[in-house]
């Protein structure tokens, strides 16, 4: 019994790690710009594909061993993915922000960018699924009836590591301070001599590289890639970020793990077709009782 609980807990932590990593990107951009970056799920997908190309290049063309390929793939994928994120910000969002367009029009533009990424991928690479090469040997450990692999542990550990790192960046460094300042007051920040555009670019770099990292880890855990893989997981991660309280890093992290746990538990006890239904109903109930999410602060509206 205890073994089953721990087993499900590990599965939930691993599955939640992906949501948490993607939700962190949503929440960073939202916290700074109050923009729902709907292209983020597709940036995750692009990250997985970039990882696929880098990894196959390293393995097949250069002939590196698996562990070395992994060491090359992780930073390279994160850098390339963050370039995609920054490119979208520069091309699509920044001109709109300069014009002072309504917030929702920027959201629509983000949705459109996501569609372009998805279908651009489909048009360029075709509808065939790609199989991600295995970079490390998956070792299965069994401790007292609980089975886990080294990959699962790596996924959970890296999600926690990323969370600690981001929390440190946002609360302790100068860039993080500038981010919080922009979130607090957009108009006073340029007056203080803070380069707003650079800070926003830094936000997108952080968020997108986390999506890239999630892409690598996801591709290693579930080695089938397809162009639509980012859409559903992206929407769900966004929901997770909101349930945690969007704009708060702890919230995104916790929300991701919560969603992962709910989904794994539903699959463990009910038919798996009910997964979305029950998971979303639970989230709806949470939002009904805490309208600003778990960590969100209720703002008093003044006239």
């Amino acid at each position: 019994m205890l073994a089953t609980i721990i087993q499900n807990l590990i599965n939930a932590l691993q599955w939640g790690s992906f949501y948490a990593l993607i939700a962190l990107g949503y929440t960073l951009v939202y916290g700074v710009l109050t923009l729902i970056n709907f292209a983020h799920g597709d940036i995750f997908m692009v990250g997985a594909y970039i990882a696929f190309f880098v990894a196959t290049f390293c393995l097949a063309t250069i002939g590196l061993p698996g562990w070395a390929a992994l060491i090359v793939t992780i930073p390279l994928t994160m850098i390339l993915t963050s370039m995609v994120g920054v490119a979208i910000e520069r091309i699509a969002y920044r001109p709109l922000r300069r014009k002072g367009a309504h917030r929702l029009y920027v959201v629509i533009t983000a949705l459109m960018c996501g569609l372009i990424l998805e279908h651009g991928n489909l048009a360029l690479l075709g509808a065939s699924r790609k199989a991600f090469p295995s970079l490390i040997n998956e070792q299965v450990f069994t401790v007292g009836g609980v089975t886990f692999t080294n990959l699962k542990i790596a996924v959970i550990a890296s999600a926690i590591l990323v969370f600690v790192l981001l929390q440190w960046i946002v609360t302790k460094t100068r860039v993080g301070m500038a981010m919080r300042a922009i979130a607090y007051d957009k108009f006073a920040v340029p007056l203080m001599g803070i380069p707003m555009d650079n800070i926003i670019v830094a936000t997108f770099i952080l968020g997108s590289s986390m999506a890239g990292l999630a892409g690598i880890l996801f591709a290693m855990s579930y080695p089938i890639l397809e162009p639509y893989m980012g859409a559903l997981i992206g929407w769900k991660a966004f929901i997770a970020a909101v349930v945690g309280g969007i704009g708060d890093i702890r919230g995104a992290f916790l929300g991701g793990f919560l969603l992962g746990a709910v989904e794994i538990l539903v699959v463990a006890f009910f038919p798996s077709t009910l997964r979305d239904l029950i998971a979303f109903t639970v989230l709806l109930v949470i939002l009904a009782f805490r309208p600003t999410g778990l960590f969100g602060i209720a703002k008093t509206t003044k006239i």
Partner: peptide, 28 residues
């Protein structure tokens, strides 16, 4: 009903979740 208390982007999520709930209920 959730929109009494929830506003803005939190309401957006509720609508997305409602969409998923409806589709998933009919699929089942």
């Amino acid at each position: 009903i959730p929109s009494y208390k929830t506003r803005g982007d939190y309401l957006a999520i509720i609508t997305i979740a409602a969409n998923y709930i409806i589709i998933s209920a009919i699929e089942n």
